[in-house]
Design a protein around this nucleic acid. Structure first.
Lengths: 222, 222
DNA sequence: ATCTGAAACTTGATATATCAATTCTTCGCA
DNA sequence: TGCGAAGAATTGATATATCAAGTTTCAGAT
């Protein structure tokens, strides 16, 4: 059996550049209000301006850069915006949870319950990587239960936490416990089709853990 | 005194084309799954492919078209997505209302109260255009009170209602009454700094009136 | 008749050249 | 010395040319 091709080669140049620039902006390598020169950046990356321009348009649509016609392109990202992106995540993710509570199937409820059990077990083993994977699967089940492809996509655009940030946050025992508690409450609300409750719990969960991530990020910068 | 130049000439070609295509997709002139040929479309519009490609990337970032590398660009918009965009609007707008309730100034509270009074007066005069303008100003005050530039931007990207749709919906007396009632309740919640309440009221308001808009749109299509 | 594969064709991906608006520099006049 | 206009330089906006992946078509073998 053959392995799939490395994703890098499947992505187009513009997608690659887009990811590159996004990471640079989110991680702070490109500072806010820093001017980006299309030609210079293109030659620096060893590409032409066409794919770069397309990548910049996507970043502009996401609100990470601002383009002033015939003047320049400026990075637009700071702590305040990071917080707003976290709030956006909370808003969208909680709306997804709301819809999931309405449409979840019995199989999906079972999946959620299984994941909760595994998370509880994971608390003991202290394997942070596994907990991160479980978290992702948990949210994925909810996303699928919601049946909201557009919201899911919109939500993924608000993601600004790096893998290392997740590692640091989940390495705290208190955080691990609280996260599992909250996940269980959310799972129960969805299982019971309590849309309002699921929405509220999810919103509070994302905001609370988000504030913790943001705190870590700002600490890491100083 | 000179009038400002027509906005058309201030916008770059790509922004113009972007708006053109977005309207065409939202209004249904371009059907879902319809294939867009870059060259054909460019020559049809009388432009080169460069600004068109940039416009298409923005639409792709917004989830209105889907680009399959070296295969084609396909329109992605249907009734289900329109509903999800409305839900996204509700989620984000309610998060904005939540923040506004925390940060609103006394002057802004006064502005909201004034607008409510004007809306009540407008109910009698039946000037729909003025009501639409008042609605917009009402939401704008809340947006400014929230201090959330990013959320505001994200929210504006979820707007799919045309001017005529607004006209039709607000031409119903029952809808006008209910909208003003809801606006007043939201204004009170924000004035009293009741973040949770403001969020919930705004969410329900956007969803309720949104469902009405969507109903009108789907009726207009058949 | 069906399947295979190579060639022609289509089309998005990428590169390069040109255009035009903005900014910067500099020279000259008050 | 300071202001301002002209022109050079910069740079994003736009147009055009080229490349390469994917699709289609059709001849030829089984």
């Amino acid at each position: 059996m053959l392995l799939p091709v490395e994703p890098v080669f499947l992505k187009s140049l513009r997608d690659h550049v887009y990811g590159l620039l996004r990471d640079a902006i989110i991680s702070g390598k490109l500072r806010s209000e820093e001017k980006l020169n299309e030609r210079q950046l293109a030659s620096q990356l060893g590409i032409s301006t066409t794919p770069l321009k397309e990548a910049l348009r996507v970043l502009e649509a996401e609100g990470l850069v601002r383009s002033e016609p015939r003047r320049g392109i400026y990075v637009t990202f700071n702590a305040a915006q990071a917080e707003e992106m976290m709030l956006a995540r909370a808003a969208i993710e909680s709306m997804i949870a709301r819809q999931a509570a309405k449409r979840v199937s019995k199989e999906q409820v079972a999946q959620l319950r299984t994941l909760i059990v595994e998370m509880r077990a994971g608390l003991e083993t202290v394997d942070v990587l596994e907990l991160i994977a479980l978290n992702e699967r948990f949210h994925n089940v909810i996303h699928e239960a919601s049946g909201c492809g557009y919201l899911r996509r919109l939500q993924s655009g608000q993601n600004i936490y790096t893998h290392t940030a997740r590692l640091i946050v989940l390495s705290e025992e208190r955080e691990r416990f609280q996260a599992v508690e909250e996940h269980e409450a959310i799972a129960n609300a969805i299982a019971n089709h309590e849309a309002d409750l699921a929405e509220r719990l999810m919103r509070d969960h994302v905001i609370r853990s988000g504030e913790k991530h943001l705190l870590r990020v700002s600490q890491a910068e100083n």
